[in-house]
């Protein structure tokens, strides 16, 4: 597969959130606004990129038996770097994402890609894969975040979008709204892919 194919598969066909249903915790927790969604998406993409590159480079050096602990160490190093850099240069976002930044460590997407892809592929392919998966994840977060922010708060990226007589349905930015949005969007994605394949 070429660079493009590795990249595009992460966006729809193997979208981590909607097709593989991985890493749901941050997907639901931080999507109360589009801004948080973008921040989380970028942070996860950075970690994914860093860990994929290092794991692909070291794949012949790391013995199979200590594979998992090595991956955990590499991933959590990148997570901590992200955590520190965000605290230093984007303190508000760091505050809004809270413990979900360190929790990127246990995001199944990153461990999943390390195990299923980067440990078996060349560095170039791993970079493409990380970009594709990261973009797919970020887009999914933005989609959920914008639905929730629009209906729950009447705004997008903080700007009022809907007409002023619109009364926001606060439930959408509360926890139940997260489950509902995710469930309906998953149903929609299933519907689209069923239509496509038939």
């Amino acid at each position: 597969m070429g660079f493009g194919a590795e990249f595009y598969k992460g966006i729809f066909k193997e979208n981590p959130s909607f097709r593989l249903v991985l890493g749901i915790c941050p997907t639901l927790a931080v999507t109360t606004s589009v801004e948080n969604a973008i921040g989380m998406g970028l942070a996860a993409t950075f970690v994914l990129l860093g860990s994929n590159i290092f794991i692909a480079l070291l794949r012949n050096f790391i013995p199979d038996k200590v594979r998992i602990p090595s991956f955990i160490v590499i991933i959590s190093t990148f997570v901590t770097i992200t955590d520190l850099v965000m605290a230093a240069y984007a303190p508000d976002l760091h505050n809004a994402l809270g413990i979900f930044i360190p929790l990127i460590v246990v995001n199944c997407i990153i461990m999943g890609r390390a195990e299923a892809f980067a440990s078996k592929s060349s560095t170039g392919a791993s970079i493409a894969d990380a970009f594709g998966m990261g973009t797919g994840f970020t887009l999914a977060l933005i989609l959920i975040g914008s639905s929730r922010e629009l209906i729950g708060n009447g705004t997008l990226l903080g700007f009022p979008i809907l007409f002023s007589s619109f009364k926001p349905a606060v439930i959408m930015i509360l926890p139940p709204g997260a489950f509902l949005t995710m469930g309906l969007l998953l149903g929609l994605f299933n519907y689209i892919s069923r239509k496509r394949s038939s």
């Binding site: 249903v21 439930i171 926890p175 139940p176 709204g177 997260a178 489950f179 509902l180 995710m182 469930g183 309906l184 998953l186 149903g187 929609l188 299933n190 519907y191 069923r194």
Partner: peptide, 19 residues
């Protein structure tokens, strides 16, 4: 409905439980 089977329906149940 076939599109809602599995994960989508579970999320909707999750919504009702959270509620």
């Amino acid at each position: 409905p076939p599109s809602m089977q599995g994960f989508p329906l579970s999320f909707v149940i999750g919504c009702l439980m959270a509620l």
